[in-house]
Design a protein around this nucleic acid. Structure first.
Length: 502
RNA sequence: GCUCCGGUAGUAUAGUCCGGUCAAGUAUUUCGGCCUUUCGAGCCGAAGACCCGGGUCCGAAUCCCGGCCGGAGCACCA
């Protein structure tokens, strides 16, 4: 017997693992929005590498901007939920707004050592000087003066925008963006209170200080983040030198996009504000919440991200790609049911006797069970009525034979937009095969229940599902035969489902 | 403009460091066929790629140079 072992793709090894006592990675979201597929690379790579080396995976909320990228309380939990759903449970969690004194401590040390300074220059003036590779007037002052300014900064003697603490770098660095970068700034805390700590701090660290200090203090061995942070590494390396630290190994992967989906937090937030989307899990969004609601499984996302790997080039995935990963998992595990979209009533006459059929819930797995329907013809004409999809019975099909799956074959007699008539032709599947009859699905009138399906573009497909769907619960993922995979969103007499994929 | 990355089929990826075994592998996609009481799955087959131009070399997807294209950064954002 031949065995086909599918090869699992593995992540390439992490560099310099032996240099560290333990592999430690971190995912550091700003809780200013829900997270989406664009973050999947960071999360999954960090988590998987930590697991691969029996290390530690940290989540760190980077909420140090109460003004421009204001954190929102609700998103801390939403992000935790998404991580849990993805199966990437962190070993440790930190919130930067709880750690402000720590950042102050290192800022002060750099100030005292003459490695940082409190700059009161207007940004325009500073810019001009720095572009000429010249120090500003503040930079050349002695540490004592800066320490004094620092105290005044903390005490509130300055206003927002008047001062900034800068870390000294090389004024001749070829990239002007690296020269003497800002480390802490002042926030008008009355106007922009922090959602977690309120007005407790008026001096807030910027990304490179907070992130740089934390990565060292938390023992992060491998920084895995987007390549937009490439220059931040260069900046932070100066600070690490000032503090006598060794910079971790860093991997900067490229941007991940998926065709058609908006993966920009600001656009998502804007769309939400404008009422463009119904919620954070609107099917048009590629947020994890939306993917979850649509029936995409974490395992599929995980596998896709691992296959993509940590390359530095950008990738634009297509939905077909995600669908393929998802379908591989869904197909063997999803029960099958009938759903008739745009139903019309089909009356079949000349049915010779009562038929009882048993329909398997999964064609390849009879052990999953089945559901039964009885078709008992009524009256002299032997009538029975069914719901069938309009597109299966259109005017062009008059005269042809089609088969009601697992039931019997019929001839189409009449058809209009509201209803159709047909007559019993024969029972056997062989006949249908011989006639090359189209196989269509059906729901007996009276054995039906309403069912709406929310499509990926947020439009709604109305239809009728078979009564057996009564047993379905929210969260179940099934396949409506000849329609596609859907995730049940609401049950209870009337089904609302989200379309997942073909 | 400046600084820095990257460019293998429609999409994604392997190979690139250490040139030959790559007339380029895999998944998906598309198209045939088989099978199947789903337009799903499965099986078989086919289609489809090394950005361009030079150079080095017996030999280049792989090394070098130039160009083109794409991306990122150049915030008192993260």
């Amino acid at each position: 017997m031949k065995e086909k072992v599918e090869e699992e793709k593995h992540l390439p090894p992490l560099p310099n693992v032996e240099k560290y006592p333990m592999v430690v990675t971190r995912f550091s979201p700003n809780p200013d929005c829900v997270i989406h597929l664009g973050s999947a690379r960071a999360i999954i790579l960090c988590y998987e590498y930590a697991k691969m080396y029996r290390g530690k995976f940290i989540v760190r909320f980077e909420d140090t901007d109460p003004k421009v990228k204001r954190p929102v309380l609700a998103f801390y939990d939403r992000i935790r939920e998404d991580l849990a759903w993805l199966g990437c449970k962190p070993d440790e969690e930190y919130i930067q707004s709880d750690r402000i004194p720590i950042y102050y401590e290192y800022a002060e040390k750099m100030l005292a050592d003459g490695n940082a300074y409190v700059c009161t220059c207007e940004s325009e003036i500073f810019r001009k000087r720095i572009l000429q590779n010249k120090p500003c007037n503040c930079r050349i002052q002695p540490p004592e003066k800066h320490l004094a300014r620092w105290q005044r900064m903390l005490a509130g003697d300055f206003k927002q925008g008047e001062v900034v603490v800068r870390v000294k770098t090389d004024l001749n660095h070829p990239n002007p963006a690296v020269r003497d970068w800002p480390a802490l700034r002042l926030i008008d805390i009355e106007k922009y209170p922090h959602p977690r700590v309120g007005t407790k701090y008026r001096v807030w660290p910027l990304y490179n200080l907070a992130c740089g200090v934390d990565d060292h203090l938390m023992g992060v061995s491998h920084i895995i983040r987007g390549k937009e942070h490439l220059t931040n590494q260069v900046r932070q390396e100066y600070m690490y030198r000032h503090l006598g630290w060794k910079y971790p190994d860093a991997i900067h992967y490229g941007r991940l996009k998926i065709t058609g989906a908006i993966l920009s937090k600001s656009k998502i937030v804007q769309g939400m504000r404008e009422g463009l989307y119904n919620d954070w899990d609107d099917p048009r969004l590629a947020t994890f919440a939306a993917l979850r609601r649509r029936g995409f499984l974490p395992a599929a996302i995980k596998k896709m991200i691992i296959d993509v790997g940590p390359k530095t080039s950008d990738v634009t995935l297509s939905w077909e790609n995600l669908n393929a990963y998802n379908r591989k998992i869904l197909d063997p595990t999803s029960d099958r049911y009938f759903f008739v979209q745009e139903p019309i009533e089909l009356t079949v006459k000349d049915i010779p006797r009562k038929f009882t059929v048993s329909l398997r819930l999964h064609p390849e797995h009879p052990e999953r069970g089945s559901r039964e329907y009885s078709i008992a013809p009524e009256g002299e004409e032997g009538l029975a009525r069914f719901w069938v999809a309009r597109r299966d019975i259109d005017a062009s099909k008059i005269g042809t034979t089609i088969r009601l799956m697992e039931l019997f074959n019929i001839n189409i007699r009449k058809a209009n937009v509201y209803s159709a008539e047909a007559s019993f032709s024969s029972e056997s599947y062989e006949d249908a095969k011989k006639a090359k009859a189209q196989l269509i699905h059906w729901v007996p009138v009276g054995e039906d229940m309403p069912c709406n399906i929310i499509m990926p573009d947020a439009t709604v497909v109305e239809g009728i599902a078979e009564k057996a769907c009564l047993r379905l619960k929210p969260g179940d993922i099934i396949q409506f035969e000849r329609f596609g995979f859907v995730r049940i969103d609401r049950g209870n007499g009337k089904i609302v489902a989200y379309y997942s994929q073909k």
